[in-house]
């Protein structure tokens, strides 16, 4: 029996399956990995590492992208 992990994504709590990777998280949110920058516990995750990076309980993830600005 494996329990779901609780991670914070952009400040909101989210449940994910144990063993989930960044790629899984992005897929569950319908986010194109090419269009996002990812920070895991304040450390940037390179795009090439998305599928190798597993999430742990209590992780804090920031998903950012470009928007209009001056």
């Amino acid at each position: 029996m494996s329990e779901e992990l609780i991670i914070k994504t952009n400040g909101e709590d989210r449940r994910v399956e144990p063993g989930s990777t960044i790629v899984d998280l992005l897929q569950s949110l319908d986010i194109d990995p090419r269009m996002v920058a990812v920070e895991l516990n304040r450390v940037i995750v390179r795009k090439t590492e998305f599928e190798n990076t597993k999430l742990s309980d209590g992780d804090e993830v920031e998903l950012v992208h470009f928007v209009g600005g001056g």
Partner: peptide, 19 residues
């Protein structure tokens, strides 16, 4: 052209981004 960096709105991820 300048752009800003902000959190993705997780409720509206299908909206077209600036790119």
């Amino acid at each position: 052209v300048t752009v800003a960096v902000r959190r993705i709105d997780l409720d509206r991820t299908k909206e077209e981004g600036i790119l």
